[in-house]
Design a protein around this nucleic acid. Structure first.
Lengths: 215, 215
DNA sequence: TAATCATTCCAGAAATTACTGGAATGATCA
DNA sequence: TGATCATTCCAGTAATTTCTGGAATGATTA
């Protein structure tokens, strides 16, 4: 057996490879996007406001850590998370961050003006209300993401189409809008628009990844 | 509302503060040690083979991320994890790493010569066997760590005292030795010693943090 | 009150990581 | 087969991070 120290160093070194992936804001944003489903490099670059080259190099590091896989589709190369446990880890990290970092809590409050726009969801009761039709759960992400996975009983109206398709929504029931997660601004914009138009609307912080975590 | 991009950047930036903590092998080792209970800077430095200064600076980063708290005890300052969710995150990260990284799996195999030294624990059956007294669960960590928390039905014999206290253990039952977790070598050494002395002994990879995770 | 001692702060050197532009790859599609 | 185009590789530079030595802190203890 080699000496204990060098063995240990090697072990922690390997685990740190995973940790390093989660140490860059840009990579975190890419992971959250990938939680919504498979996406091409170009799409990811666009949505994360990065150059394609830089996106590619970040994705390369994700792949080296075996957290993402690739697949060629036509001319594009599509990236996806290797499995659900990667999304789970992302959720657990950002939830821990929200619990611990006051700065993050403050920054989150800037997303909406009124704090009561939030619903710190009790899943069961939301689910029950949605089943009964008492509320409308609205997915405002791009439709491909909705097709990949969505919350139970959710309807899809991408934010871009929302203004044109307002008449599809009832005015006598509360609209619960959600998007990719707490750091995505789509649902906040949707709620703002809906309120201006006289709808009763609240903002659900959770996205599909958060919803799907075991705890 | 400020522009979407700068808000998002700020949010991911904050979450990355937590990720950064887990991106350094040395900090991971310190976190694992802290999973065993409160420890002074000097103790941590010694066990992680670091200088006191460097240990202090790593701990400072942990504290800035609000993952650890301090308490003065006599002349020493003791660090502890702020709560269980930090330990849970550590466990989830290293388990994910073990699942994904072949290099880590290979490095783990170097710890013991025979692969059947491992028991990829089925918790319930181990618990049952321990309750019935069919196996002896042996905690070989320093006794303070045992006193802080230990596995159900576990007995404590620190590795250093094991050779002198061999007669406390039965030869007709299997000894299941565990320590701080899969990257701690104490249990591996204990199993080696026990086998040389004619005992039936196996190595449990899990420590208290792994055992205590909800999943 | 003074002495002690564990710990932290500070500043600098070495190593690593993030990002940018130009060239190369390699599969698709005509 | 040859043209196209998304993506990756390969420099180089800027920025961060890790680690080391000397000084400073600040609570304890005599």
């Amino acid at each position: 057996m080699k000496d204990a120290r060098s063995i240990k160093d090697a072990l922690y070194e390997q685990v740190a490879r995973i940790g390093k992936v989660f140490s860059s804001p840009k990579r975190l944003e890419l992971i959250e996007l990938l939680c919504q489903g498979e996406k091409s490099v170009e799409t990811l670059a666009l949505e994360a406001s990065l150059s394609v080259k830089l996106t590619s190099s970040h994705l390369c590091e994700l792949r080296l850590a075996h957290l993402v896989e690739t697949r060629r589709q036509g001319k594009n190369i599509c990236y996806r998370l290797t499995d659900k446990s990667v999304a789970d880890l992302w959720v657990q990290i950002h939830v821990l961050a929200e619990d611990r970092l006051i700065e993050l809590q403050l920054a989150l409050q800037k997303i909406v003006s009124q704090p009561d726009d939030w619903v710190n969801s009790d899943r069961d009761s939301l689910l029950k209300a949605a089943r009964k039709g008492e509320v409308v759960v609205l997915d405002v992400r791009p439709s491909e993401e909705y097709l990949n996975a969505h919350l139970p009983f959710a309807r899809s109206i991408p934010l871009e189409e929302l203004r044109q398709r307002l008449d599809e929504l009832p005015k006598d029931r509360t609209i619960v809008a959600y998007c990719r997660g707490p750091y995505c601004l789509l649902a906040a914009d949707a709620v703002l628009l809906l309120k201006q138009e006289g709808y009763s609307a609240i903002h659900l912080r959770e996205g599909v990844a958060e919803w799907a975590t075991s705890r």
